[in-house]
Design a protein around this nucleic acid. Structure first.
Length: 286
DNA sequence: ATGGCATTTAAAAAATGA
């Protein structure tokens, strides 16, 4: 961002001389995504992470709470505003934004299936960026009706993502995609070949989405690194670093150019009463 | 290859997750 800076000098005869200089001041926006696995069970962990990581935007998944049980007061006290789309017992997504500026909700749910009652998509515009927060269906066991639902949900996402691309605005999709993109993204990938997170149909759908013009932000900045965002609760998976990379940031070309950093707050996975996912974030310039 | 754990709902045990 460009600023005009006024500099004043005071000469020896007390007349002052002003000069002006244009300076570039970099403004960064930190956007995070975090599958909390129950927002009320996870509230202390969520608040501690917000305080330490201080994202400007936090997209949350798996609230596992109906709208009326969203802990708005605690979120507000932490300095965040919130949009949320809850559901009893399962699913549920939210977008938190820090400070006084209010995000504009631009979408709730995906078109294409009037029967679908699962709360898995919420979209908002904040600071000139369109942010889609999603919780893509797991799809196991595969094959089966749950896998069919996953694939049809991905098809509906693909349709919506296409309209987002054609809007030509700075846009990102983030959340728990329940997709392991490549063998590099799973501890012992050979165990996942028949799983809904890794099956060819899932990969094909994910590739079709990327081919629209989306960039996997973490992989773009770290082409060869093993990065995980999820470790299951069993067999000390986190301590053994036996994880998966399934939480993603997809950036359109406009935002890809402005991507300056990305990471996983994996230390949060080591906390008491924590989610099986860790928060993931990107930093966007300007 | 399997079972291991955690949450919600609701009142014991089932469903879900990845």
């Amino acid at each position: 961002m460009l600023f005009l800076l006024k500099i004043q000098f005071f000469g020896k005869h007390l007349q002052h001389v002003s000069c002006y200089a244009y300076v570039f001041k970099d403004i960064f926006m930190k956007i995070a995504t975090y599958n909390v696995n129950g927002i009320n069970a996870r509230l202390p962990v969520l608040l501690k992470w917000l305080e330490e990581s201080r994202p400007d935007v936090a997209c949350l998944q798996e609230l596992k709470a109906p709208d009326e049980k969203f802990p708005l007061e605690a979120i507000t006290d932490a300095g965040y505003q919130a949009l949320w789309h809850g559901q009893k017992s399962w699913n549920g997504v939210a977008i938190l934004t820090r400070g006084d500026k209010t995000a504009l909700e631009t979408g709730r749910g995906l078109a294409g299936d009037p029967e679908d009652v699962q709360s898995r998509y919420l979209e908002a515009e904040f600071n000139g960026i369109t942010i889609g927060c999603l919780y893509l269906p797991n799809g196991n066991p595969a094959p089966g009706p749950k896998f069919d639902y996953k694939l049809s949900w991905m098809q509906r996402l693909e349709q919506h993502a296409k309209t987002l691309i054609s809007a030509r605005k700075p846009t990102l999709l983030c959340g728990d995609f329940n997709v392991i993109p490549t063998a590099l993204d799973a501890y012992k990938a050979e165990r996942w070949v028949d799983d809904a997170l890794f099956r060819p149909e899932t990969h094909e759908a994910f590739e079709r989405l990327l081919d629209q013009g989306w960039t996997d932000a973490l992989r773009k900045l770290n082409p060869d690194t093993v990065i995980y965002t999820y470790w299951d609760y069993f067999r000390q998976a986190y301590r053994r670093n036996a994880g998966l990379r399934i939480d993603h940031f997809l950036l359109n070309k406009d935002l890809e150019k402005r991507l300056t950093a990305a990471g996983v707050d994996d230390y949060v996975r080591g906390w008491e009463k924590t989610s099986d996912h860790a928060p993931v974030w990107v930093e966007i310039q300007g």
